[in-house]
Amino acid sequence: MTTSAPWTRRGLLGGAGAALALGPTGGRPALGADKPVRLSFQRSSTLLTVLKLKGTLVERLAAKGFAPSWHQFTGVIEPMNSGAVDLHADVADAIPVFTQSAGAPLTFYAMEAGSPRAEAIIVPDESPIRSVADLKGKTVGVSRGSGCHFILAAALKREGLRFSDITPAYLEAPDGAAAFARGSLDAWAIWDPFLAIAQAKRPVRVLADATGLSSYNRYFLVNDSFAAAHPEVVGIVFDALVEAGRWVKANPKDAVALLGPVWGDLPPDIVATVNERRSYAIQPVERAALSEQQTIADTFQEAGLIPRKIDATAVRIWRPAASRG
């Protein structure tokens, strides 16, 4: 396919649903290293990407007899449910509701504080759709189980509509981008960096972002068995994430220069927009703060998106030693 810019679907987004084991630059365990620590990430996993590119975890894990092994996914629910890696890609608030409903053995170990402007429901600027209420009977693209899945359901509910009042097109973000670009969708519920790319490529209208619906917290999860066996490794990764978040915010130009090439040579202004809208503030997970997760779970259960009611706060939580009571 001929393209006019390097930051197209092929360059940035890759194949939908693909799982890619990535190599050097902190990607593959060194020869003779001890046990690999398998980490996954996705395109929106900015801080994990920074750690991979900078090789931060290589030396720190080596001191404990481990080495990082990196794996990239576009669809994250399946590997989380199956335990395909040890430490999973950071995910939007809605995804743990689906994995908990499926009984996946996962422990929460970190949270990125809210960034509600980093996900939104958008339409082309020329669209006659002017509000969420106008989505009734329309086809809306969304990634199943994502934070945007909840935003879409909650925004419809706020307007007195049911999820069944729309036709959802369940597409992973790369395919959603292509479908939105060719006009196959009436609207698209999507997150950064895909949101920022769509806004840069053509005029679009934001019908609603997460403001007033969700904080859009992102959670980091680890397999229960790994957290129990190697809490010191989880601690190393937690501390590195905290540092990476502070580095991105303190060094915006350097962060843009680092991330732009691996995001498909995105123009610097798009990368800067993504980084400005995300908080990147990493903190321990507190059970009391999971009340918003319950709202998401109840909304999904009511909409028939999960089969049963769950207690979204009844999850395993790892906390760094300094924050334990």
Rank of each mutant, 00 (worst) to 15 (best):
S4V: 15
G11D: 11
G11F: 09
A19D: 06
L22I: 03
T25C: 12
T25A: 14
A30T: 09
L31Q: 15
L31H: 13
D34M: 11
Q42N: 13
L47M: 14
K52T: 07
K52Q: 14
K54Y: 09
L57V: 05
V58K: 02
V58M: 04
A62F: 04
A63H: 08
F66K: 02
W70T: 02
H71F: 15
F73M: 12
S82Y: 09
A84L: 10
D86N: 01
H88P: 01
D90T: 12
V91S: 05
D93W: 14
A94R: 03
A94Y: 03
P96G: 11
V97N: 02
T99N: 05
G103L: 07
P105L: 15
P105T: 07
T107H: 11
A110C: 03
E112S: 14
E112M: 13
A113R: 08
G114W: 07
G114R: 02
G114T: 03
R117D: 10
I122V: 01
P124N: 10
D125K: 11
E126T: 14
S127Q: 04
R130I: 01
V142S: 02
R144Q: 14
R144D: 13
R144S: 14
R144E: 13
F150P: 03
L152M: 08
A154V: 06
A154Q: 08
L156W: 04
K157E: 15
R158E: 01
R158W: 08
E159G: 07
G160P: 04
L161R: 01
D165Y: 02
T167G: 10
T167F: 13
P168K: 00
E172D: 11
A178P: 04
F180I: 00
G183C: 05
S184W: 12
S184T: 09
L185A: 05
L185V: 01
A187H: 00
A189K: 02
I190L: 03
F194Y: 10
A196K: 04
K201R: 15
V204I: 12
R205A: 12
A210H: 05
T211I: 15
S214E: 14
S215I: 05
Y216P: 01
N217P: 06
Y219T: 00
L221F: 09
L221D: 01
A227Y: 03
P231H: 03
E232R: 06
V233I: 05
V234M: 02
V234R: 00
V234I: 02
I236W: 01
A240T: 01
A255I: 00
A255C: 04
A257W: 12
L259T: 00
G260I: 03
G260C: 05
W263L: 15
W263R: 05
W263F: 15
D265R: 08
P267F: 11
V274A: 07
E276Q: 13
R277Q: 00
R278N: 11
Y280L: 13
I282K: 04
P284C: 06
V285C: 03
V285K: 03
E286D: 10
R287P: 10
R287D: 04
A288H: 13
A288E: 10
A289I: 11
L290V: 06
E292P: 08
Q301N: 15
L305M: 15
A312G: 07
A312C: 02
T313Y: 12
T313C: 09
A314D: 03
R316H: 12
P320W: 07
S323Y: 14
G325K: 12
